[in-house]
Amino acid sequence: MSRSHTRVSEEVTGEACPLVEVIDHVSGKWSISILVAAAHGPIRFTELERSIEGISRRMLTLNLRRLERDGLLTRTVHPTVPPKVEYALTPMARELYSHLTGLVGWAERHRGAITRARSAYDATTAAPQQSAPPE
C-alpha cells in the first residue's frame, strides 16, 4: 500500500524512519545482550563472546561496530602486544540500560501471566481448527 493510500505525510514518515531504525538497533537480541554484558564496566571481546550464548564472532563484531557507530559503546585499544581492546557503555547507553532493566523486571513479573494468556489463546483458537473424525 502506498503512502498516499495510508495518508501518511512525508513529514511524519521522515520523522518516524530514524526512530524506527534506532529502536531496531537497540532492541535486537544481540544488542541487548551486549549492552547488558558491558553494563558492569569495560569488557573485552573474548569476555563478551563467552558471556553471550549463541553469538558468532562475526555477529558480535557487526553488532559491536553498529553500537559504536550509534554512540552506545566506546572502543578503547590499549597499546600492548597483543593489542587489548575493551568496550564500555557511553552515558547514553547507561541511560538506555536503566530502561532495559525496567523492561526485564516487567517481563520477569509478568512471565507467568503471559504464558497463561498464550495457553488460553491457543486453546480457543486450536479447537475450531480440529476437524471431525471421518465417518
Results as ranks from 00 to 15, higher is better:
R65D: 04
I32W: 06
A132H: 10
E10I: 06
E86M: 09
M92G: 13
L96K: 01
V77F: 05
V26N: 00
P83F: 05
G14N: 15
I23M: 13
T124F: 06
H5E: 12
V81A: 07
E68V: 04
E108C: 03
L62C: 14
V85L: 08
Q129W: 08
G102H: 04
L19K: 11
A16T: 05
P82K: 07
R116F: 12
R3N: 13
R69V: 01
R65A: 04
N63I: 01
M1S: 13
E95L: 15
V77R: 09
F45K: 12
I32E: 00
T80F: 03
I52M: 10
T80L: 10
I55S: 06
I34N: 07
R109M: 05
H78C: 15
R57A: 05
K29G: 04
S27P: 07
A113R: 13
H110D: 07
I32A: 08
T46I: 08
L73V: 05
Y121P: 06
A88W: 02
S119C: 14
P18Q: 04
Y121H: 13
R69A: 14
R50S: 12
L62E: 11
V20H: 05
L100M: 00
P134Y: 03
D122K: 13
G14L: 07
S131E: 11
T125A: 11
V104D: 12
E95S: 14
I55Y: 04
E86L: 09
A113K: 11
A117Q: 09
A120Y: 07
H78I: 11
H5D: 12
E135M: 07
E108N: 07
D24S: 06
G71F: 00
T6F: 02
W106I: 00
R116W: 13
D70K: 09
I43T: 08
I23S: 15
T76L: 09
L89F: 01
L89K: 07
T124Q: 04
K84A: 04
T61Q: 11
P83A: 11
A16N: 04
P133W: 00
L64I: 01
P42W: 08
H25Y: 06
E11Y: 10
I32Q: 10
R58Q: 05
D122V: 11
H40P: 06
P82T: 02
L62P: 12
A126L: 14
A126M: 11
V85Y: 02
E11N: 09
V20M: 06
A88M: 08
V8E: 09
R69G: 15
A132V: 12
V36G: 02
L72F: 01
E47H: 00
V104C: 15
I23R: 13
Y121V: 06
V104L: 10
C17Q: 04
E10Y: 00
H5M: 08
A132I: 12
I52K: 05
A127W: 02
A123G: 09
M1A: 13
G28W: 02
A39R: 01
I114Y: 04
R65G: 01
R7Y: 06
E47G: 14
Y97M: 15
H5Q: 05
W106G: 01
E53A: 15
A126N: 14
S119H: 14
L60Q: 06
H78S: 13
N63H: 03
P82C: 08
I114H: 10
R57T: 06
V8F: 12
E53N: 14
P18C: 01
A93V: 00
D122W: 14
T74E: 08
L67N: 05
T90Q: 03
Y87I: 03
L103Y: 14
A93F: 02
A93D: 05
M59A: 13
E49T: 02
